[in-house]
Structures are given as structure tokens and as C-alpha cells.
Design a protein around this nucleic acid. Sequence first.
DNA 1: TAAATAGTGTCTATGAGACATTATGTA
DNA 2: TACATAATGTCTCATAGACACTATTTA
Lengths: 251, 251
Amino acid sequence: MTLPRGDKARTGEEAFLKRYRPEDYSRPSVTVDLVVLTIVDAVLRVLLVRRREHPFKDAWALPGGFVRVGDAQRDQGEDLDAAAVRELAEETGLEPGQVFLEQLYTFGKANRDPRMRVITVAYYALVRPDLAPLVRAGGDAADVDWFDVGSLGKADLAFDHGEVIARALERIRGKLDYSDLAFSLVPHTFTIPELRSVHQVVTGIPQDAGNFRRRFNRMLADGLLVKAPGKRITASKPATVYRFVRKGEEP
Amino acid sequence: MTLPRGDKARTGEEAFLKRYRPEDYSRPSVTVDLVVLTIVDAVLRVLLVRRREHPFKDAWALPGGFVRVGDAQRDQGEDLDAAAVRELAEETGLEPGQVFLEQLYTFGKANRDPRMRVITVAYYALVRPDLAPLVRAGGDAADVDWFDVGSLGKADLAFDHGEVIARALERIRGKLDYSDLAFSLVPHTFTIPELRSVHQVVTGIPQDAGNFRRRFNRMLADGLLVKAPGKRITASKPATVYRFVRKGEEP
DNA sequence: TAAATAGTGTCTATGAGACATTATGTA
DNA sequence: TACATAATGTCTCATAGACACTATTTA
């Protein structure tokens, strides 16, 4: 079963493209919205910004904005992922590499924005707790803040952003056990109890200290973790500090 | 920490909406593309259609089309999911309820379509093998066909559709073990060896017959499966026929 | 009765969960 | 030294993987 790519058939494609009129089709607006999460004081928090304009003026909303699509065949604008990275930088000052960023889901019900048809591609980002305090410095403190996801009612948020957050939580809860996500929610160096706390805060399920440590030790044996210098200030025995080693990386 | 939804602040929202001009922002085209999968003759197959127009004229591509977005605030068009359902019906004649359909991922690199900026929201659908033969009847037989996913080179396909298919495969392989997906790839009634074959065809990993049966028997004990009437035509001992019971459903 | 496949049983290794116990650093 | 928490160890149970063996239906 061969698939003729049809190189011959492409004759005339250039001419076709010149004739093509994008205006012949009506088009929606497309935005990127970000669910930026962190853990501070053992609470899972999401970054929200207060809207300055209608609709939902003065309500809290996810940071986000329009995808730049250019205005010609020669300039088609920015990649979707690039738009997410740009919005993240604009709204938080965080660079990719500092945070985990992944596409989440695309929300496209009609009338989710009363102005016009808007389809939003949601991304979620995980921010280490030591970087979280830097975020507010970027914007006006009154207009951007971290909120406890546990005490957010869906009705509190603009648009369908409550749904978006709910889906982000579902995603990270599902991936936490079999992925590296948890390492994006602790400082660059961390202790086993700290990592255990991340699991408890995200899932809400208490983790047995001993059993958690056992799983952790397997990662250590696999070389995914190495001991790191430094110790925590504590009123009792301080825990050993570790550092995560990405696959293929050398310690 | 309370979130003032700002009902007072919404005063003036109506007036604002009237003044709003969507044309002030440039907008991309948005399409829905479908990765329609089935298993026939122990081969995982994807439905492709031959393009009649430039670009990629005569190349094979995923079925899909533009999302209807309406042209006014009062008519914002169809939901994204509805667009997927509509395209599925148009291109295959299949109705929701007959197939499993789920959003996959949104592809939005610049220049993925040479005509203009197009962002596509990909969905994937799983079709039972007994329904698969009906699909071609809908379209022109020369222009729509099922292709073995194992012998598709990415370069054979229009746009970035090779990538889209690859991601769909990744998704179903990841979900097969801990979800009900497999039941969407067998007929309404099925045998244990048939179900085992689905796993082998999708993952490419051989499954021990005895161990597979053991897991299956747990589902039986949990009431997720019931025996069904009928038997297969076979040259040796015919297997017991079962039927899947969705959660909450009565057998 | 032979061939082929359905279906059962067994042994071992591994990991999860519950929980008791020991070790160690700080105030 | 007392306290708090880190760290280790042990028991049981559920499940996965490998594989031998039995049962049943058809040609």
C-alpha cells in the first residue's frame, strides 16, 4: 500500500496559493490561557490576574492573551507553543527552562466569551516555590496574585476558567505518580519529606513516610537523584538534600 | 480570600459589547481533524481521505474541516466538540454513541498550512471493526480508505498529519491498560482472545494468554463484563462470548 | 481421533500498604 | 537530656510474568 505523495500533482500549487483568499472563511479569535501553579506553605496555588476590561471586568481570570497570527501568507505569526511561552514571560517574568510548561486542552464552546467567538488553547505551568515570590513583582501587586485552588469556587472566575483549572488539576494528579512533574514543584534541591509533601498537597491523599521513601530510594538507585550539598534550617534532625538528574544528564 | 465576582462592576458590560469590534484583531482559521482508528484483520488502521485541492493535492490527509464560528455576537457557531461530531458524521456516516471520540491535541505551528495560518484541534475516534466496512460506502471509494498505521511514513501525509497520528497512537497506547478504550475496538460482543488481540495489535507487545485472561476475569468479577449469547465460527473450540457493561448500566 | 485453541493452575518476583522500631540532629 | 523528625525494617497482600498443564469443540 503505497501513498503517492503526488509531486507531479503539486504543479500549480504556487499559483493556487496566490489566488487564495483567507477572507472567504469566517474565523474565530484564538487565545492562549495559562494555568500557572505553585506550592507555597503547603498549599497548591494558581496565579490569577484581575481583569481591567469588560467582559468580567474586575473578576479574576487566568493569565493569557491572543495568539499572534500575522497578517499574510509570508508572515503567519508565532507558533502556538511560542505564544504560551511569550504569555508566561509577559505575565510572570518566568522563562522556559525555569518552569514546566505543557499544553493542556482546548476549550471551544460557543458563547464562552460574550464578545465574539473565542477558542482558547490552555497550557499549564508548574513553578518552583522559590520562584513564586518573584512573579508578583512583575505586575501590579493588586492585580495579580496566587490563590489557593482548594478554596476557589468555579463561579468566582471569569469565562470558563474554573473548568480549565479543574482540568489542569486532573491532569497533574493523574501524571504525578508516573512522571517527573513533582520535581517541578520543589526547589532545585529538596528533601524526601518535602517531596512527599508535594504529593500530599496535590492529591490530598496522605502518604506513608516509609513507603514514600522506599519508592524514592528506587529512583536514587536508578540514578535519577543524587545527593546535594546544603541542609534545611530545622528544629530537629535535618533531612538529606537531593537534586534531580534529568535523563541523559550527568550529575 | 474571597473573590469579588464584581456584579456591580458589570454595569456597562452590555454597552461595551455593542461597541466591540472583533475585526480589530487578526484571527487564524481553525479546523478540526480526526484520527479515526479501527482494527480489521488484526491490523490497526487509520481513515484517510485523498485531497482534491491544493495544497497537497492528491495526497492523503486526515478527514476534517473548518469549525463553524458564525458571524455575529448572537450567532457564535458550533461548539468545538460539535464540530468534531459533525465532521465525523459527514466523512464517515458514524454517529456519536457508535464510536469513542475524544479531543487529542491542538497543533498550531506557523506555516503548517502554506495558504494561511491554520490551527487545528485534533480529535481521535475509535471505530468497532464491524462498523468499519460501512464507512467507505459514504464517500467515493477511490478517495477514502483505511491504511495500516504501521506502514505509513510521515512524509506520505499532507500537512503535519503524520505527527497527529503519531500522537494519537501514543495516547491510546498509554490509556489502553487503565481505561475502557479496548472495548471500542471490538464488536459489541467479543471473546477474550479477541480482546487480547486488540492489545497486541495496538501496543505491539505480545500478551500471555493466561495472564491476560486473569486480568479479564477480575473485570468479570467486578461486573464490568457479562456473558453474552452467540458464538464464533471456528475450526476448533469456540470461545465464550462477552459483552461490556458501562458503569451504572444494568446488564 | 487429531488438531487447535480455550481455559486453568502454579511458582516466583515485585511492589504497595500498614505499622513498628531505630537513628540522629537540635534546642 | 528531651524532643522531633529522619530513616530503616518487617509483615502481609495483591498483582504481574513466565510457563506447564488440562479441557473442549470441530473437522
